[in-house]
Design a binder for these strands. Structure first.
Length: 644
RNA sequence: GCCGACAUAGCUCAGCUGGUAGAGCUCCCGAUUUGUAAUCGGAUGGUCGCGGGUUCGAUUCCUGCUGUCGGCACCA
């Protein structure tokens, strides 16, 4: 006998080897149709897989198709159906891997001939046929060696190689068969048959992807798809994508006249007046934060002699990404890709004592890097960018406090800018590295503890640190759901040493300081891109390039409109005037689309009473205030958060 | 850099199987003096990304390049 405990707490008894599907059917036939899998003692279980061997009552749950677990199963089943469809249509195709991702799945295929997005229609049609065939999906347990032999025999070299790699010798694995022929290595679970899948799926995009994620390996063809519990879910998802597109910073950048980019300067931003206002407000804000945190701001040369880059190690490690030039006199120069060597030069001026540490240096450092053309993306990934960079020269025992203080400032800045952290990651020691294991133990532990001391969770990235030290990464999401690394703190004992930085310790000995590279925003370009998408162009008053547009109703109130604008400007509000010969409806519409936070309408009434009618973006409400009241309100609201 | 797609007026987009291009908005001109998301009329605007090729003829087909978009790899 089996005893199962249902989510509602009910305890029920069943015959041994009963399947979840039989249990569901016994409860109600409609339930049996709705479910896609079961969960037994926390483990997902195929509906048709007998439950056995349980001596104690097990938690039992049926998974509905629209639950998070259910969607996972639908998506993975869809990936399998897609793979089968493709192999039926294109028999020379080998399957590799096909995991779920957020809102969907992908599957990587190896095939000499190229797929095209034009093939999608045909593939989707075949997938729907496979659903209509209602092929039974069955679970089988195979031994590792039999599986390897089988997949090799049928020409699935990649599959065989995956099994060789991930399944330990002597172990068994599970194979899911779809119909009589098609099979794939899979942990499962899957639905009992393809008919249960439904047809709320869509192939989304086609891309190249390297086998095992390594550019040295063969490039596979990856097809992305999405799948939902029903057609409504699919349509809602597609709508969500369209809405996200409207927030795209590249689109808003043009619409709001913030910046543009062009062929002759790819990966470089032309900031327009409005965009540059935004940039400078952010820059000034971050400058105040940095000053408050005890940094001295500096400015270092844009181009430096190659010998310095050789000394710092950048030439060797980073040379391929550096812009260089040669003078008529034969000097070899390189445009800086980073600010650190310049900062060490400043540190090296004069003699430094342990009393000077920690010494914090900041720079709005304009850098150039030759980024691969395929990696460029709007203003988020560019070749010319400005970092809110800073370097902290300190002793080992100061790393913890400095890191913690940095994390706290970063949290404050992100809160002020309404940017939500997606994750904090700690990149750990790589295979090839400098320094002793003890040093790595200490530095990794210290960074982790310091970040965690601010109450956040840190995700570990083994093997991804720089060769000289571990690195904290602060990631945020853009409108489309992609994550970008913005803030960072990187520990570097190597560069100060290479560039001859030292200080005199208490005991009179010369010591090399450790260097913390850190940036809160990362780069202005990327962070502004994120902010534009995040706010969807609707900036809070303190950030808005144009805060108020004063619009008159008729030319009669033109003089008063000018007076209002002059007064707004006098108290530091970024105001513009719109006295065009247009209806007020037209002006309101235009400035609303231009995402002006406040439209101040003035007509004959306002002019006589020395008032303004304020209309906020996103609201139809009108607030009538005296001009003096309006000035007070707007100045207060337009004050940066750190100055309030 | 690699894979796929795309490139038409300032912007957003039409243009079937080859016969040198069209709309709406914007800009410009004129009329309209208007109370909270588009007033009316008129005019202007394109070597159809760039270079080759096929063809009597190419925006359309082929090809090379450049850029953009979506991924991969790389990275802030």
């Amino acid at each position: 006998m089996l005893e199962l405990k249902f989510p509602d707490g009910a305890l029920r008894q069943y015959a041994d080897k009963i399947t979840p599907l039989e249990i569901a059917a016994a409860i109600s036939p409609s339930l049996a149709k709705r479910v896609v899998a079961a969960k037994i003692a926390g483990q997902l279980w195929d509906l048709t897989r007998p439950i056995e061997g349980a001596t104690e009552p097990q938690n039992f749950e049926l998974i509905n198709r629209d639950s998070p677990d259910g969607l996972e199963i639908i998506r993975h089943d869809t990936a399998h159906v897609m793979a089968q469809a493709i192999q039926e249509l294109y028999p020379d195709t080998q399957i590799t891997i096909g995991p779920n991702i957020e809102d969907g799945f992908f599957y990587d295929f190896a095939r000499t001939e190229k797929f095209s997005t034009d093939d999608f229609e045909k593939i989707e049609k075949r997938m729907k046929e496979i659903v209509d065939r209602d092929l039974p999906i069955t679970r089988e347990e195979w031994t590792r060696d039999v599986a390897i032999k089988h997949f090799n025999e049928i020409g699935e070299k990649y599959k065989a190689s995956i099994i060789e790699e991930i399944i330990p010798e002597g172990e068994t694995l599970t194979i899911y068969k779809q119909g009589d022929v098609w099979k794939d290595l899979c942990r499962g679970p899957h639905m009992p048959s393809t008919g249960r899948l439904g047809k709320a799926f869509k192939l989304m995009k086609l891309a190249g992807a390297y086998w095992r994620g390594d550019a040295k390996n063969a490039q596979l063809q990856r097809i992305y798809g999405t799948a939902w519990a029903d057609e409504k879910g699919l349509q809602e998802y597609l709508l969500r994508l369209e809405e996200a597109e409207r927030r795209d910073h590249r689109k808003l950048g043009r619409q709001l006249d913030l910046f543009h980019m062009q062929e002759e300067g790819k990966g470089m931003v032309f900031w327009h007046p409005k965009g540059w206002v935004l940039y400078r407000i952010l820059e000034n804000y971050i400058r105040r934060m940095v000053e408050k945190s005890g940094y001295g701001e500096v400015k270092t040369p844009q181009i430096l002699d190659r010998s310095l880059w050789e000394a710092s190690g950048h030439w060797e490690k980073f040379g391929h990404a550096m812009f260089t030039c040669e003078t008529e006199e034969g000097e070899h120069l390189a445009v800086k890709p980073m600010n650190c060597p310049g900062h060490v030069q400043i540190f090296n001026q004069g003699q430094k004592s342990y009393r000077d540490l920690p010494l914090r240096m900041a720079e709005m450092g304009c850098c150039h890097r030759f980024e691969p053309s395929g990696s460029l993306h709007g203003i988020m990934r560019v070749r010319n960018f400005t970092q809110d960079d800073g370097h902290i020269f300190c002793r080992d025992d100061q790393i913890f406090d400095e890191t913690k203080a940095f994390c706290e400032t970063l949290a404050q800045v992100y809160a002020d800018l309404d940017v939500e952290l997606h994750s904090i990651k700690l990149a750990l020691r790589p295979e090839i590295r400098l320094g002793s294991d003890e040093t790595w133990d200490y530095t990794e532990k210290t960074l982790k503890a310091a970040a965690e001391a601010t109450g956040v969770e840190v995700e570990l990235l083994p093997g991804e640190g720089a060769f000289y030290g571990p690195k904290l990464e602060f990631h945020v999401k853009d409108a489309i759901g992609r994550t970008w690394q913005c803030g960072t703190l990187q520990l570097d004992p190597s560069t100060p040493d290479r560039l001859g930085a030292h200080y005199t310790a208490e005991d009179g000995s010369k010591q090399v300081p450790v260097m913390l590279h850190r940036a809160i925003l990362g780069t202005f370009e990327r962070f502004l891109g994120i902010m534009i998408e995040n706010y969807a162009g609707h900036f809070p008053l303190w950030l808005a390039p144009v805060q108020v547009v004063v619009a008159n109703i008729t030319s009669e109130s033109e003089a008063y409109a000018s007076e209002v604008v002059a007064k707004l400007k006098a108290v530091g509000i970024r105001a513009e005037i719109d006295t065009r010969n247009e209806k007020i409806n037209y002006k309101v519409r235009e400035h609303s689309l231009g995402k002006i936070p406040v439209i101040a309408v003035v007509g004959a009434r306002e002019a006589t009473e020395q008032k303004v009618a304020l209309r906020r973006l996103g609201s139809q409400e009108q607030t009538i205030l005296t001009l003096d009241e309006a000035l007070l309100v707007l100045v207060a609201e337009g004050t940066p958060p750190d100055l309030r």
